[in-house]
Simulated assay, not measured.
Amino acid sequence: MKVKNISKVVGQMPVRDPFILSAYHYDLYPKGNGKMGPDASLLKGKNIGQDFDRDADWRMYHGETIPGFPHHPHRGFEIVTIAAEGFADHFDSKGSKGRYGNGDVQLMSAGSGVLHGEMFPLLNDDKDNPFRLFQIWLNMPSKSKLTEPNYKMLWSEKIPEAHITDENGGKVDVKVILGEYYGVKSQDPLENSWAKDKNHHVGIALVEMDPGTKFVLPAVAASMNRFVFFYDGTSTISIEENNMQQRQLADLAGDEEITITNGDQKAKILILEGEPIGEPVAAYGPFVMNTQQELQEAFEEYRRTEFGGWPWGDKETDIVNPKDTGRFASYNHGEEIDKP
């Protein structure tokens, strides 16, 4: 069976090993207030810290004056953050910081433990600030879970792309974040990533399809888990004669060639695929380990050390870069700077 299941995504996507979680955020934030927060009342209809109302045009999540997620810990997995629209500010306990957005991707291995914050500054004061973000938790095998935390940027301009023209002249553009599609290989994954070994068949890609075009996923392996998420488009797409609406996820066979056909409007899809790690998973909140004992040890170590502490000021858990800062990444307290 090529198409195992098609489901409506409300909140997190129902993905499987090697993926732990895949979340999609799309917020129509209003104009900024000059201080990188929304120029709108937060007292009416906004439940700060609990605001996950999917019917709302925009959510603050856990930010109090600026949207985002103030500092919090992670251990035992890798986070792939795709900032498709809008901007994100990153700070962590390793002394790294940065700003990225409008197509940039961040790879971050939590490894043995890291404390990080990700805030979403609203930089436009004269127009709205639409924000679109994917956050994908890619698990790590037990041998890699306590490796040194790591972080790198994939700048939008440098992410490899496959450009396909079909027999009718329509175009399909594939942004290859991890893996290989149509002969185009991604940049190198992080050193301890499950994606490092090409035999694990890890693939993450964003695909934009012109109306009426087709995109083919090749047969790879029966053991591989494969998902397609249709996240933007006013028409429908079909996967092997199964129609899909916007915000639906298809669970697909990994050992079958899969043809995706677009309808009469542009469509954007996310591809997630990879071989399962096949190890026990013990996950709670921000930690993903193999056993309950390892989870307990992770919480105990975090309470004791805070994974190195927060070097950006005790009270600044929701810190952002200055408003006029461009896109950049700074590592190890500014010892290394990376820009697009």
Rank of each mutant, 00 (worst) to 15 (best):
V10T: 13
M13F: 02
P14D: 10
V15S: 01
S22Y: 02
L28T: 10
K31Q: 15
N33K: 04
N33Q: 05
S41C: 06
L42Y: 04
K46I: 14
D51P: 06
F52W: 10
W58R: 01
H62C: 11
I66C: 09
H71I: 09
P73A: 03
V80Q: 01
A84D: 15
E85I: 00
A88H: 04
K94A: 14
G95N: 03
L107M: 12
M119R: 03
F120S: 02
P121T: 09
L133D: 06
F134M: 11
I136L: 14
W137R: 00
L146A: 11
P149C: 08
W155L: 13
S156M: 02
P160W: 00
I177L: 10
L178R: 01
Y182Q: 08
V184Q: 06
W194T: 09
G203L: 07
I204H: 02
G212Y: 01
L217A: 06
F229D: 01
N242R: 10
N242K: 12
L249E: 00
N262F: 00
L272I: 00
G274I: 04
E279F: 00
P280I: 00
G285W: 11
M289V: 01
W310Y: 03
P311D: 12
V320C: 14
F328G: 09
F328Q: 09
N332H: 11
G334F: 08
E336Q: 14
